[in-house]
Amino acid sequence: MIPRRASLGTGAALIMVTVSLALWAGGAQDSQNPSADKEIDTMSPDLPGSGASRVPPPKVDALERNGIRYEPALSGLPLDATDVSGWMRATNIASGEVLWLAQVYTNPDPVDPFLPGGGRNMIAMKRISMSGNMIEVEDIRGRRFLVDPETGTSTPSGG
């Protein structure tokens, strides 16, 4: 009796799991229209996640000094960058040569799996200016960093 009951229970559980998964998959495709276009429904495989509409970050003026332009890097980041905050590029204005591309600050927030873009918002730059012989960068959260103009290495400067 006992083994048989266990086997029935296991069978019932398996059926329930299968039905639940099938129902979930159906619901995930389209709760309103089960015959909807499959191509549309599988646009992005990552669930549940979210999408957001956002306004652009503040525009930051590039800093030009000794023939070199220092600016936020918004493209051309390393393809494996999981944190897109704080990237900066130094370019020789005359030759167009990129002297360095560096991440001068990071996003300290824990990964939020519901946030679009890999679970971390980009913390935008607010200002790039000179501070003595160093470049000072401020982000939209008010954090400040001193950046070596030669190498792009940075340290927090308080504030």
Partner: peptide, 19 residues
């Protein structure tokens, strides 16, 4: 997003999604 499962697509190497 909610009906078609679209994304705010971030092209690899970009800092911002394609808004």
């Amino acid at each position: 997003h909610s009906q078609l499962n679209t994304d705010d697509v971030t092209v690899p190497g970009d800092a911002h999604p394609r808004y």
